[in-house]
């Protein structure tokens, strides 16, 4: 059996999760990895029996690949997607799609024109618990959404610079905006407030107020001043039912369902990264109909997170699509 030849650009935390997942599949060969820090590229290459590259563009120009995983910091998006597009190479790209909206919109237009197979790393959508939440809410109208991403400040030097990371709302809380869209539908308008931090220009805390097209309302809050991850989750309220999904770690999630019969909590140690990677591979192999989060879909969640960030910066409500 011939194996799919894949490359991975980036060797940070989330890239490591993808590399581990990809290495576990019999029908995949990780042939190349790239990182701007040569030692990191070499270490990952040695571990997975791949060739190291000092940058993603070099990897894309020289390797014969069936697909590439783009797991780079937010500010590094753009040229890599363009290079993959130029070669007609399917790509899996990590969130956020960029530190701003413009970069991602340009890429989305090119992806659509090329009809390229893509997937975005909104991994919550691949959790069995989230599918269960979708089923519970399917025939009901969600009335209220409340979400919180209360965490520490990640250590990466680029993270605390808004221009580089997009800020917490765009870089982290985007997962909650994505989940809110999945479970409560599209958002019409967002208003927001934020609190500046003494270090870095990423706010210490921010809250976004959402009005959904359905008439539902919600608020999603972010804070980065804690010592460690404190509370990360989204709760949905509908008549007679509350559903909450929380994340303690990438493979540590919980679903809490409260209704007239009481409250029930279900835990999960599922690895959603392996599931999303497998789905993308199966689509490439013609064994699955489509990915859950193609680029165009990821763009809508990114646009919502960017709107929440902009509404806070500008101090006025933002209508999606404006």
């Amino acid at each position: 059996m011939s194996r799919l030849r894949v490359g991975v650009v980036g060797t940070g935390f989330i890239a490591g999760r993808h590399l581990a997942a990809l290495a576990g599949f019999d029908d995949v060969e990780v042939v190349a990895v790239a990182d701007a820090v040569p030692a990191r590229a070499e270490e990952a290459a040695a571990r997975y029996g791949a060739r190291p590259h000092p940058d993603g563009t070099a990897l894309l120009e020289t390797e014969e690949l069936d697909a590439v995983w783009l797991c780079v910091p937010p500010f590094a998006h753009g040229p890599l997607e363009a290079a993959a597009l130029a070669r007609g190479l399917p790509f899996f790209v990590e969130k956020p799609l960029g530190p701003d909206l413009a970069t991602a919109e340009t890429i989305a237009a090119e992806v659509a024109a090329a009809g390229l197979t893509t997937a975005v790393g909104y991994h919550w959508r691949h959790l069995g618990l989230v599918h269960r939440a979708q089923e519970l809410l399917r025939d009901r109208s969600v009335q209220l959404v409340t979400g919180a991403w209360l965490d520490r400040t990640p250590g990466a030097p680029w993270w605390s610079r808004r221009a580089a990371s997009g800020g917490q709302v765009v870089e982290q809380t985007t997962h909650l905006f994505d989940l809110a869209r999945l479970l409560a539908g599209e958002v019409d308008t967002v208003a927001a407030v934020e609190r500046a931090a003494p270090e870095g220009d990423v706010p210490a805390a921010a809250t976004a107020l959402l009005t959904f097209t359905s008439g539902a309302v919600g608020s999603i809050s972010s804070a980065r001043v804690l010592g460690r991850r404190h509370h990360v989750g989204l709760e949905l309220v509908t008549e007679g039912l509350a559903v909450e999904v929380t994340e303690r770690g990438l493979s540590d999630h919980e679903l809490r369902v409260s209704d007239a019969d009481g409250a029930e909590t279900t835990g999960s140690d599922e690895d959603p990264v392996a599931v999303e990677d497998r789905e993308f591979l199966d689509v490439l192999l013609g064994q699955a109909p489509g990915v859950r989060v193609p680029y165009a879909e990821g763009l809508r969640s990114h646009a919502l997170a960017c709107a929440a960030d902009r509404a806070a910066r500008e101090g006025r409500p933002v209508r999606l699509g404006d």
Partner: peptide, 22 residues
């Protein structure tokens, strides 16, 4: 249901949500 995003004089921000549907 009602939800608010508020700014405090101290610079703090917050949200307040209520629902009586449960």
């Amino acid at each position: 249901v009602c939800t608010a995003a508020l700014r405090f004089e101290s610079g703090a921000v917050g949200s307040f949500s209520n629902s009586c549907l449960l």
